[in-house]
Protein backbone atom coordinates (compact mmCIF):
# COMPACT_ATOMS: atom_id res chain seq x y z
CA UNK A 1 0.00 0.00 0.00
CA UNK A 2 1.75 3.13 -1.14
CA UNK A 3 -0.31 5.47 0.85
CA UNK A 4 1.93 8.49 0.86
CA UNK A 5 2.33 9.84 -2.59
CA UNK A 6 2.70 13.41 -1.45
CA UNK A 7 5.92 12.75 0.35
CA UNK A 8 7.80 11.30 -2.61
CA UNK A 9 9.55 14.52 -3.48
CA UNK A 10 10.80 15.48 -0.05
CA UNK A 11 13.96 17.57 -0.28
CA UNK A 12 17.10 15.73 0.85
CA UNK A 13 17.49 18.04 3.85
CA UNK A 14 14.87 15.98 5.75
CA UNK A 15 17.60 13.42 6.38
CA UNK A 16 18.85 15.67 9.12
CA UNK A 17 17.65 14.87 12.58
CA UNK A 18 14.14 16.27 12.79
CA UNK A 19 13.26 18.82 15.40
CA UNK A 20 10.62 18.03 17.94
CA UNK A 21 8.26 20.42 16.18
CA UNK A 22 8.70 18.61 12.89
CA UNK A 23 8.04 15.28 14.59
CA UNK A 24 4.93 16.57 16.29
CA UNK A 25 3.42 18.24 13.22
CA UNK A 26 1.55 15.25 11.74
CA UNK A 27 0.05 14.39 15.11
CA UNK A 28 -1.23 17.93 15.54
CA UNK A 29 -3.09 17.68 12.25
CA UNK A 30 -4.46 14.29 13.26
CA UNK A 31 -5.45 15.28 16.75
CA UNK A 32 -9.06 16.56 16.37
CA UNK A 33 -10.23 13.55 14.36
CA UNK A 34 -8.19 11.05 16.35
CA UNK A 35 -9.44 12.33 19.70
CA UNK A 36 -13.02 12.12 18.46
CA UNK A 37 -12.82 8.48 17.45
CA UNK A 38 -10.74 7.61 20.50
CA UNK A 39 -13.26 9.13 22.90
CA UNK A 40 -16.49 8.20 21.12
CA UNK A 41 -15.69 4.89 19.41
CA UNK A 42 -12.76 3.00 20.92
CA UNK A 43 -12.98 4.03 24.56
CA UNK A 44 -16.71 3.14 24.77
CA UNK A 45 -15.97 -0.14 23.00
CA UNK A 46 -13.58 -1.05 25.83
CA UNK A 47 -16.06 0.21 28.42
CA UNK A 48 -18.79 -1.96 26.92
CA UNK A 49 -16.43 -4.90 27.23
CA UNK A 50 -15.93 -4.01 30.89
CA UNK A 51 -19.66 -3.49 31.53
CA UNK A 52 -20.43 -6.89 30.04
CA UNK A 53 -18.98 -8.44 33.19
CA UNK A 54 -21.06 -6.32 35.56
CA UNK A 55 -24.63 -6.10 36.69
CA UNK A 56 -25.87 -2.52 36.52
CA UNK A 57 -29.06 -0.52 35.88
CA UNK A 58 -27.66 2.71 34.37
CA UNK A 59 -28.32 4.75 37.52
CA UNK A 60 -25.13 6.62 38.44
CA UNK A 61 -25.95 6.16 42.12
CA UNK A 62 -26.44 2.40 42.05
CA UNK A 63 -23.36 0.19 42.31
CA UNK A 64 -21.98 -1.98 39.52
CA UNK A 65 -21.72 -5.58 40.69
CA UNK A 66 -19.10 -7.84 39.15
CA UNK A 67 -20.71 -11.06 37.90
CA UNK A 68 -18.01 -12.59 35.69
CA UNK A 69 -19.29 -14.46 32.65
CA UNK A 70 -22.82 -14.68 34.00
CA UNK A 71 -24.28 -12.09 31.59
CA UNK A 72 -22.98 -14.06 28.65
CA UNK A 73 -24.38 -17.40 29.79
CA UNK A 74 -27.64 -15.72 30.79
CA UNK A 75 -28.31 -13.99 27.49
CA UNK A 76 -27.89 -17.21 25.56
CA UNK A 77 -30.62 -18.76 27.69
CA UNK A 78 -33.12 -16.02 26.89
CA UNK A 79 -35.69 -16.98 24.27
CA UNK A 80 -35.85 -13.41 22.97
CA UNK A 81 -32.14 -13.55 22.21
CA UNK A 82 -32.64 -16.71 20.16
CA UNK A 83 -35.52 -15.07 18.39
CA UNK A 84 -33.46 -11.93 17.76
CA UNK A 85 -30.51 -13.87 16.37
CA UNK A 86 -32.78 -15.87 14.11
CA UNK A 87 -34.51 -12.69 12.95
CA UNK A 88 -31.15 -11.04 12.31
CA UNK A 89 -30.41 -13.87 9.91
CA UNK A 90 -33.78 -13.38 8.22
CA UNK A 91 -33.07 -9.68 7.83
CA UNK A 92 -29.64 -10.33 6.36
CA UNK A 93 -30.79 -13.00 3.91
CA UNK A 94 -34.13 -11.36 3.22
CA UNK A 95 -32.66 -8.08 2.10
CA UNK A 96 -30.31 -9.71 -0.42
CA UNK A 97 -32.96 -10.37 -3.11
CA UNK A 98 -33.96 -6.71 -3.03
CA UNK A 99 -30.56 -5.16 -2.56
CA UNK A 100 -28.49 -7.46 -4.76
CA UNK A 101 -30.37 -9.92 -6.99
CA UNK A 102 -33.14 -7.74 -8.35
CA UNK A 103 -30.86 -4.73 -8.97
CA UNK A 104 -28.35 -6.97 -10.74
CA UNK A 105 -31.05 -8.37 -13.03
CA UNK A 106 -32.41 -4.91 -13.76
CA UNK A 107 -28.93 -3.55 -14.46
CA UNK A 108 -28.17 -6.37 -16.90
CA UNK A 109 -31.48 -6.13 -18.72
CA UNK A 110 -31.27 -2.37 -19.10
CA UNK A 111 -27.65 -1.95 -20.08
CA UNK A 112 -28.58 -0.83 -23.60
CA UNK A 113 -30.73 2.02 -22.45
CA UNK A 114 -28.62 5.12 -22.82
CA UNK A 115 -28.64 8.85 -22.95
CA UNK A 116 -31.41 11.09 -21.64
CA UNK A 117 -33.78 8.28 -20.71
CA UNK A 118 -31.07 6.64 -18.63
CA UNK A 119 -30.40 9.84 -16.73
CA UNK A 120 -34.07 10.33 -15.97
CA UNK A 121 -34.41 6.77 -14.63
CA UNK A 122 -31.27 7.24 -12.56
CA UNK A 123 -32.68 10.37 -10.95
CA UNK A 124 -36.02 8.67 -10.21
CA UNK A 125 -34.92 5.33 -8.80
CA UNK A 126 -32.43 7.06 -6.50
CA UNK A 127 -35.05 9.10 -4.65
CA UNK A 128 -35.58 6.56 -1.78
CA UNK A 129 -31.91 6.98 -0.81
CA UNK A 130 -32.63 10.64 -0.04
CA UNK A 131 -35.49 9.94 2.33
CA UNK A 132 -34.89 9.82 6.07
CA UNK A 133 -35.65 6.44 7.68
CA UNK A 134 -38.29 7.90 10.01
CA UNK A 135 -40.08 9.50 7.07
CA UNK A 136 -39.90 6.25 5.13
CA UNK A 137 -41.32 4.35 8.09
CA UNK A 138 -44.20 6.79 8.52
CA UNK A 139 -45.08 6.74 4.83
CA UNK A 140 -45.19 2.94 4.71
CA UNK A 141 -47.22 2.82 7.87
CA UNK A 142 -49.76 4.98 6.08
CA UNK A 143 -49.64 3.00 2.83
CA UNK A 144 -50.12 -0.28 4.70
CA UNK A 145 -52.61 1.01 7.26
CA UNK A 146 -55.17 -1.77 7.91
CA UNK A 147 -58.20 0.46 7.76
CA UNK A 148 -57.58 3.29 5.36
CA UNK A 149 -54.26 2.58 3.64
CA UNK A 150 -54.01 2.34 -0.12
CA UNK A 151 -52.71 -1.24 0.14
CA UNK A 152 -56.05 -2.25 1.56
CA UNK A 153 -57.89 -0.55 -1.24
CA UNK A 154 -55.84 -2.71 -3.57
CA UNK A 155 -56.72 -5.85 -1.62
CA UNK A 156 -60.37 -4.88 -1.70
CA UNK A 157 -60.28 -4.31 -5.44
CA UNK A 158 -58.75 -7.69 -6.19
CA UNK A 159 -61.00 -9.25 -3.53
CA UNK A 160 -58.33 -10.80 -1.38
CA UNK A 161 -58.33 -11.06 2.37
CA UNK A 162 -56.45 -7.96 3.56
CA UNK A 163 -53.21 -8.53 5.44
CA UNK A 164 -52.34 -6.57 8.53
CA UNK A 165 -48.73 -6.21 7.46
CA UNK A 166 -47.26 -4.74 10.63
CA UNK A 167 -49.40 -6.51 13.23
CA UNK A 168 -49.50 -10.01 11.78
CA UNK A 169 -46.66 -12.13 13.18
CA UNK A 170 -46.18 -13.96 9.91
CA UNK A 171 -45.88 -10.81 7.84
CA UNK A 172 -44.36 -8.16 10.06
CA UNK A 173 -40.71 -9.10 9.63
CA UNK A 174 -41.04 -9.43 5.86
CA UNK A 175 -42.71 -6.05 5.75
CA UNK A 176 -39.73 -4.48 7.50
CA UNK A 177 -37.36 -6.40 5.24
CA UNK A 178 -39.24 -5.03 2.25
CA UNK A 179 -39.10 -1.44 3.52
CA UNK A 180 -35.37 -1.71 4.22
CA UNK A 181 -34.87 -3.15 0.74
CA UNK A 182 -37.07 -0.54 -0.89
CA UNK A 183 -34.63 2.16 0.15
CA UNK A 184 -31.69 0.29 -1.38
CA UNK A 185 -32.96 -1.05 -4.72
CA UNK A 186 -32.26 2.09 -6.71
CA UNK A 187 -28.83 2.61 -5.22
CA UNK A 188 -27.68 -0.94 -5.95
CA UNK A 189 -29.11 -0.83 -9.45
CA UNK A 190 -27.13 2.30 -10.24
CA UNK A 191 -23.94 0.83 -8.81
CA UNK A 192 -24.33 -2.31 -10.93
CA UNK A 193 -25.22 -0.32 -14.04
CA UNK A 194 -22.12 1.78 -13.60
CA UNK A 195 -19.97 -1.31 -13.18
CA UNK A 196 -21.44 -2.86 -16.33
CA UNK A 197 -20.88 0.35 -18.27
CA UNK A 198 -17.23 0.22 -17.26
CA UNK A 199 -16.66 -3.24 -18.73
CA UNK A 200 -14.29 -2.92 -21.68
CA UNK A 201 -16.43 -3.03 -24.85
CA UNK A 202 -13.70 -4.75 -26.85
CA UNK A 203 -14.20 -8.02 -24.91
CA UNK A 204 -17.87 -7.96 -25.79
CA UNK A 205 -17.13 -7.18 -29.43
CA UNK A 206 -14.63 -10.02 -29.67
CA UNK A 207 -17.11 -12.46 -28.15
CA UNK A 208 -19.82 -11.28 -30.49
CA UNK A 209 -17.57 -11.78 -33.51
CA UNK A 210 -16.95 -15.31 -32.29
CA UNK A 211 -20.68 -15.86 -32.36
CA UNK A 212 -21.44 -15.80 -28.63
CA UNK A 213 -25.06 -15.15 -27.67
CA UNK A 214 -26.02 -12.23 -25.44
CA UNK A 215 -26.71 -14.63 -22.58
CA UNK A 216 -23.28 -16.24 -22.97
CA UNK A 217 -21.65 -12.80 -23.02
CA UNK A 218 -23.50 -11.80 -19.86
CA UNK A 219 -22.72 -15.05 -18.12
CA UNK A 220 -19.08 -15.48 -19.16
CA UNK A 221 -17.81 -11.92 -19.54
CA UNK A 222 -19.95 -9.26 -17.91
CA UNK A 223 -20.78 -11.09 -14.67
CA UNK A 224 -17.21 -12.21 -13.92
CA UNK A 225 -15.87 -8.74 -14.67
CA UNK A 226 -18.31 -7.02 -12.35
CA UNK A 227 -17.94 -9.66 -9.64
CA UNK A 228 -15.90 -7.36 -7.34
CA UNK A 229 -18.80 -4.90 -7.33
CA UNK A 230 -21.32 -7.67 -6.72
CA UNK A 231 -19.21 -8.94 -3.83
CA UNK A 232 -18.90 -5.43 -2.47
CA UNK A 233 -22.65 -4.77 -2.45
CA UNK A 234 -23.36 -8.23 -1.05
CA UNK A 235 -20.89 -7.68 1.78
CA UNK A 236 -22.36 -4.29 2.51
CA UNK A 237 -25.85 -5.77 2.64
CA UNK A 238 -24.86 -8.73 4.79
CA UNK A 239 -22.93 -6.60 7.26
CA UNK A 240 -25.18 -3.58 7.45
CA UNK A 241 -28.64 -4.68 6.27
CA UNK A 242 -29.80 -5.73 9.68
CA UNK A 243 -28.43 -2.50 11.17
CA UNK A 244 -30.30 -0.39 8.61
CA UNK A 245 -33.60 -1.95 9.60
CA UNK A 246 -33.27 -0.62 13.17
CA UNK A 247 -35.08 2.65 12.50
CA UNK A 248 -38.01 0.89 10.81
CA UNK A 249 -38.32 -1.61 13.63
CA UNK A 250 -38.20 1.10 16.26
CA UNK A 251 -40.70 3.38 14.58
CA UNK A 252 -43.09 0.75 13.25
CA UNK A 253 -43.20 -2.27 15.55
CA UNK A 254 -40.80 -1.76 18.50
CA UNK A 255 -39.80 -5.35 17.88
CA UNK A 256 -43.32 -6.76 18.09
CA UNK A 257 -45.76 -8.37 17.57
CA UNK A 258 -44.46 -10.82 20.19
CA UNK A 259 -40.81 -10.20 19.24
CA UNK A 260 -41.50 -11.20 15.64
CA UNK A 261 -39.53 -8.29 14.21
CA UNK A 262 -36.84 -7.69 16.81
CA UNK A 263 -33.26 -8.21 15.73
CA UNK A 264 -30.04 -8.14 17.67
CA UNK A 265 -29.56 -4.40 17.20
CA UNK A 266 -33.00 -3.61 18.46
CA UNK A 267 -32.69 -6.08 21.31
CA UNK A 268 -29.48 -4.34 22.47
CA UNK A 269 -31.40 -1.10 22.51
CA UNK A 270 -34.31 -2.68 24.38
CA UNK A 271 -32.02 -4.24 27.00
CA UNK A 272 -30.13 -0.99 27.45
CA UNK A 273 -32.78 1.69 27.36
CA UNK A 274 -35.99 -0.31 27.79
CA UNK A 275 -35.21 -2.58 30.73
CA UNK A 276 -31.91 -0.95 31.83
CA UNK A 277 -30.19 -4.33 31.86
CA UNK A 278 -26.83 -2.80 31.08
CA UNK A 279 -24.90 -6.03 31.68
CA UNK A 280 -27.04 -8.01 29.26
CA UNK A 281 -26.98 -5.27 26.68
CA UNK A 282 -23.20 -4.98 26.91
CA UNK A 283 -22.63 -8.72 26.77
CA UNK A 284 -24.89 -8.98 23.72
CA UNK A 285 -23.04 -6.02 22.19
CA UNK A 286 -19.71 -7.78 22.63
CA UNK A 287 -21.10 -10.96 21.08
CA UNK A 288 -22.45 -8.89 18.20
CA UNK A 289 -19.18 -7.02 17.72
CA UNK A 290 -17.21 -10.27 17.64
CA UNK A 291 -19.61 -11.95 15.23
CA UNK A 292 -19.64 -8.89 13.04
CA UNK A 293 -15.85 -8.78 12.95
CA UNK A 294 -15.57 -12.47 12.05
CA UNK A 295 -18.16 -12.04 9.31
CA UNK A 296 -16.32 -9.04 7.90
CA UNK A 297 -13.00 -10.85 8.00
CA UNK A 298 -14.40 -13.94 6.26
CA UNK A 299 -16.15 -11.73 3.72
CA UNK A 300 -12.94 -9.90 2.85
CA UNK A 301 -11.04 -13.17 2.51
CA UNK A 302 -13.72 -14.59 0.23
CA UNK A 303 -13.79 -11.42 -1.79
CA UNK A 304 -10.04 -11.47 -2.37
CA UNK A 305 -10.12 -15.14 -3.23
CA UNK A 306 -13.08 -15.33 -5.58
CA UNK A 307 -13.61 -11.93 -7.11
CA UNK A 308 -12.20 -11.70 -10.60
CA UNK A 309 -10.31 -8.52 -11.30
CA UNK A 310 -9.62 -7.27 -14.77
CA UNK A 311 -5.89 -7.43 -15.36
Amino acid sequence: MNHAVLRVNQPPSTKRRKSFAALATPYLYLLPALLTIAIWVYKPLLQTLELSFFDWNLLPTSPKVFVGWQNFSRIFELPEVHQALWNTLIYILGIIPMAVVLPLVVAILTEHIQGRARNIYRALVFVPMMMAPVVVAIIWRWLLNPVQGIAFEVFKTIQLEPINFLRDERWAIWTIVFITGWKLIGFSTLIFSAAIANVDRSYLEAARLDGATEWQITRRITLPLISPTVFFITMLTVLLGSQWSFAYINVLTQGGPRNATTNIYHLLYEFGFGSFAIGWSSAAAIVLFTGFGVLAFVGLKLMNKYAIYET
Partner: peptide, 22 residues
Protein backbone atom coordinates in the same frame (compact mmCIF):
# COMPACT_ATOMS: atom_id res chain seq x y z
CA UNK B 1 -3.64 5.07 13.22
CA UNK B 2 -4.99 4.97 9.69
CA UNK B 3 -6.20 1.46 10.45
CA UNK B 4 -8.07 2.79 13.50
CA UNK B 5 -10.01 5.10 11.21
CA UNK B 6 -10.60 2.42 8.59
CA UNK B 7 -11.95 -0.01 11.18
CA UNK B 8 -14.47 2.25 12.90
CA UNK B 9 -17.22 0.96 10.62
CA UNK B 10 -16.76 -2.42 12.33
CA UNK B 11 -18.07 -0.95 15.57
CA UNK B 12 -21.85 -0.73 15.28
CA UNK B 13 -23.42 2.21 17.01
CA UNK B 14 -25.41 -0.01 19.35
CA UNK B 15 -22.15 -1.33 20.78
CA UNK B 16 -20.92 2.05 22.02
CA UNK B 17 -24.24 3.66 22.91
CA UNK B 18 -24.35 2.98 26.65
CA UNK B 19 -20.91 4.35 27.63
CA UNK B 20 -21.47 7.31 25.30
CA UNK B 21 -24.85 7.99 26.82
CA UNK B 22 -23.39 7.79 30.32
Amino acid sequence: LLGLFALTWLVPFQVTMIPNYV
